[in-house]
């Protein structure tokens, strides 16, 4: 017996398995980042002094990174749309751009981190930097996870397009859901850490 509904939709839920699975996973991610945001609020409200983000951090670089990550989200959704229109070449292009954007994001982030370390601002310096490094670090790990996933789908994983095109399109959609979530987290991290 094969496991049903890996590709076709179950009639009463209208979903294939992986889509429900990834949304459940994202729900748990919401709680993970929610707990960290909640901790941030508590620590900030309870602190005697809390530096403004713009005093400590590099806004232009972070704005650049925001633009880069939003762009990668668009290219991701475009790569899925290309598969839907059966244009595999365009898929390769857009997915490649998505990975490139993610790499740029990490490089910029590395420069930001490097600068902080140069002037001795480690996570132990104060609670603001502690939560800054924790939140952006965890987000960075998610970016790395996304790069690994997308690179697989861009490279070796894409052979599935020839054998099971629908299943492959579903995979890209599911990977996209994860990647948009990573973007979404950054959309909240950016103002909370840098602008307030």
């Amino acid at each position: 017996m094969q496991i049903p509904y890996t590709v076709q939709l179950r009639s009463d839920t209208g979903l294939f398995n992986a889509k429900l699975g990834v949304w459940l996973f994202l729900a748990s991610e919401v709680m993970l980042f929610g707990a960290l945001f909640s901790s941030y609020v508590l620590l900030r409200v309870g602190a005697d002094h809390w530096p403004h983000g713009w005093e400590e951090l590099n806004i232009p670089l972070a704005t650049l990174n925001t633009v880069v990550l939003i762009s990668s989200s668009v290219t991701m959704v475009m790569s899925w749309a290309s598969l839907k229109m059966s244009n595999f070449k365009k898929y390769k292009l857009y997915m490649g751009l998505t990975i490139l954007c993610a790499l740029i994001f990490l490089v910029v982030k590395a420069f930001e981190y490097g600068h902080k370390f140069e002037i001795g601002h480690y996570p132990s310096y104060n609670t603001f930097l502690a939560i800054y490094f924790t939140l952006t670090g965890l987000h960075g790990l998610h970016v790395i996870g996304g790069i690994v996933l997308n690179t697989y789908l861009w490279g070796p994983g894409s052979y599935m397009w020839k054998t099971e095109p629908e299943r492959f399109t579903n995979r890209v959609e599911v990977a996209g859901l994860y990647w948009h979530f990573v973007d979404l987290v950054w959309i909240f991290l950016f103002p909370v850490l840098y602008l307030l």
Binding site: T13, G14, L15, K19, L20, W23, S73, V74, M76, V77, G176, L177, H180, F181, D183, L184, I187, F188, F190, P191, V192, L195, L196
Partner: peptide, 26 residues
Amino acid sequence: ALIIAVIKGSLVASYFMHLISEKKLI
């Protein structure tokens, strides 16, 4: 800042993640 972030977040969730036309279960 939060209002703008919420608007941006909802745009990503609604259109990129297709929440605007998703199934009830989700």
